Amino acid sequence: MKRPGPLLTLLAGLLLGLFMLTLNATNGTKNAASTRKEPPATRPTAAVKSPTPTASRLPTADASYAGRTDDDSSSVAVTIRRGRAIAYFCDGHRKESWLKGDVEGDGSMRLTGRDGAELDGRIQEGERIRGTVGIDGGHYAFTAAKAVKPSGLYRATASVRGAKVDGGWIVLPDGRQVGILSRDGKAGPAPRIEPATGAVTVDGERLTARPVTP
């Protein structure tokens, strides 16, 4: 029996080497694939909303204002202290109303009084109040300028000769006075006061009208 020739031996060796090379390449690919780690899936991050900045609301400065309605029929005075306001509407004859309420940080105000009376206004540049007063079914636009003493709002209450007296006065920047004095609820024009002292004489008795603050 003849031994395989050198050619066959060489061919068998080449085939074996080729087989081993192919096997190693295949295993290497599998090992690399098995050891490769996929990056972890990332969850979408919700957008974080920054807090909405609160608008700066500076407190309204204490001040007094006095002026006339646009039709020049009546006067309006407003006094502001620590964010509260009190106002007086007066025609100098029989129509009047005391109103009060809060003043917002932007200078706006809505004051209310008896019998549905309302005052809606806003401070403009710290120098004036522009607004409207609704009273007895009528509406009166007004402008009240910043008041410097002795102009402003005054009131006196007392008992005179057995009658309950209640008086309100608006002293305008030009010195004019508008007021109503009620005796037991009956209204009429108020006597003139002395703004420097608030002194006023009612039915022979001397009273003192004082500046009004909320």
Rank of each mutant, 00 (worst) to 15 (best):
K186I: 14
T9M: 14
T35I: 05
G131L: 06
R68S: 12
E104D: 09
R161Q: 12
R176W: 04
E127N: 11
T22E: 13
K2M: 11
E38V: 14
P51I: 03
I123R: 06
P39M: 15
L119K: 12
G167K: 10
V178Q: 03
T29E: 14
G198H: 02
Y88D: 10
D70M: 12
P211R: 15
P6L: 15
R110W: 10
T143D: 12
K149T: 07
I180F: 06
L7Q: 13
A199W: 00
A156M: 07
G92Q: 02
P195A: 05
D102C: 02
G198M: 00
W169H: 01
T35H: 04
H93W: 10
S151Q: 05
P173H: 12
Q177Y: 06
G67R: 11
A196W: 05
V103W: 11
I129D: 09
P4V: 05
P51Y: 03
G83N: 11
G167V: 10
G116P: 01
R155W: 11
E38S: 12
Y88L: 15
A85H: 03
T52V: 15
M1E: 02
T22K: 13
G152D: 02
G17S: 03
I170K: 06
N24G: 14
G107A: 08
R114P: 01
A85D: 00
A156L: 11
R94V: 03
R206T: 14
P189C: 08
P189Q: 10
A199V: 09
G126F: 03
G168W: 15
L18I: 11
A87K: 05
K49A: 15
V78N: 09
L207R: 08
V148R: 05
G185L: 09
V103C: 08
A145W: 08
I123T: 01
P195I: 02
H93I: 13
R36Y: 01
D91R: 09
M1C: 03
T201P: 01
L7E: 13
E205F: 07
K149H: 10
L8K: 13
F19H: 11
T69Q: 06
A77I: 12
E96V: 14
G185R: 05
G67N: 08
A85Q: 01
S108R: 06
A25R: 03
L153Y: 13
P214G: 03
K2P: 15
D174C: 04
S182M: 10
L23M: 13
K49C: 00
G188A: 14
R176C: 00
T197A: 01
G92D: 01
R122T: 13
I193F: 10
H139M: 13
E104H: 05
D70N: 13
S64Q: 13
T54I: 14
P4K: 11
S74E: 04
P214M: 04
A46C: 07
P59K: 00
A156N: 09
T9C: 08
A147E: 05
R130H: 11
G5I: 08
G204D: 07
T26G: 07
A32P: 00
V212L: 06
D136M: 15
S97Y: 04
G137I: 04
R43A: 08
D91I: 07
V48C: 06
T29L: 10
A47Q: 06
A12V: 14
I170W: 01
E96K: 14
Y154T: 04
S34I: 13
R161C: 01
